[in-house]
């Protein structure tokens, strides 16, 4: 058994080191940068205190990005939640073609999101949008007044939210499906015998029993949404007039394209509070799973 004492650490330390170097160190560096004056190309580092944060907080673009981040995350997660709950209930029972449906429904999540977004960019094209073609044909709008989906601030926001919802919905659906499958058949049958109808069974029995798993889906969904910029980068680049700028995309434009590493880091630091809350919730749900 003496062998075991060093074998364990020897087996997991390489992995931990890798993560520490490529996640832990940059994580700390992000904080260090945010209180310094690093720029791309400059070598030196001077401590500037909270200067970057002060200048970020004064920027109207930043405040807009914070607001957009919350609008983007909250609305897409609400839509995802409603859609995923309906869809998971509709997919739970076996039916002919279930595997094919599952594959089709999963595609938006499994296909690279940048690729899926390009597909939408074509669907939402300013001139050749198929949606507009339909709207014109059914006489909802006139040919030359058709909406410019990605070119008007409000519509652009709605578009990125919907496309992101499209991307995240499958993920939440499969997680909820896992939760649904875990509900014992007996319970649903007991509800039927006890006289509960379609809606009472769904709202008073199934939905409350799914709550823990819904929490998981929303938690991960919210983290992935709040920290993602892919859909927005592809569809609008944060525009028009920063109307779809969110924290991650602003950090990218400032820190990487704008070469102001320090200010970019300061912006992305604002993601941290949300992550801390999320981590705490994950730990709590993991802990609760152990207790019960």
């Amino acid at each position: 058994m003496r062998q075991q004492r060093w074998l364990g650490p020897a087996m997991f330390i390489p992995a931990i080191l890798y993560i520490v170097i490529l996640v832990g160190v940059p994580f700390v560096m992000a904080f260090v940068y945010s209180v310094g004056d690093v720029k791309v190309g400059s070598e030196g580092y001077h401590f500037v205190g909270l200067h970057n944060f002060a200048s970020v907080l004064k920027s109207p673009t930043f405040l807009l990005a914070v607001r957009n981040s919350f609008i983007f995350t909250i609305s897409s997660q609400i839509l995802v939640l409603i859609g995923a709950t309906m869809l998971s209930m509709a997919l739970q029972e076996a039916f002919p073609g279930r595997r094919f449906f599952r594959f089709l429904i999963l595609l938006p999540w499994v296909a690279p999101v940048s690729i899926g977004s390009i597909g939408w960019k074509w669907i939402l094209d300013s001139l050749y949008s198929v949606i507009n073609w339909v709207l014109v044909r059914v006489h909802l709008v006139k040919q030359f007044e058709a909406p410019v989906w990605l070119g008007e601030p409000k519509l652009a926001m709605i578009s990125v939210i919907l496309v992101h919802t499209w991307h995240m919905l499958p993920f939440a659906t499969v997680i909820l499906l896992a939760g649904l499958t875990a509900i014992p058949k007996d319970i649903v049958e007991a509800a039927a015998v006890d006289g509960a109808g379609f809606f009472r069974t769904r709202f008073q029995i199934i939905l409350p029993m799914m709550l823990p798993i819904i929490n998981v889906a929303v938690l991960f969904g919210a983290i992935f949404t709040f920290t993602d910029m892919t859909v927005i980068y592809i569809l609008t680049r944060g525009g028009p007039y920063d109307s779809t700028q969110v924290l991650p995309s602003l950090a990218f434009f400032t820190g990487i394209l704008g070469s102001d590493l320090a200010e970019g880091a300061a912006i992305s630091i604002f993601l941290v509070p949300l992550l801390v809350i999320a981590a705490w919730l994950v730990l709590r749900s993991a802990h609760r799973a152990e207790v019960t």
């Binding site: 992995a15 940059p26 950090a251």
Partner: peptide, 27 residues
């Protein structure tokens, strides 16, 4: 504590690329 460490490692999966990309570009 292996389980604790396991959860700890899993949590690092939640640290987003949009927080790390600036320092990592330097690395």
């Amino acid at each position: 504590w292996g389980a604790q460490l396991g959860i700890g490692i899993f949590l690092t999966y939640l640290v987003p690329s949009t927080l790390l990309f600036i320092p990592l570009s330097r690395v």
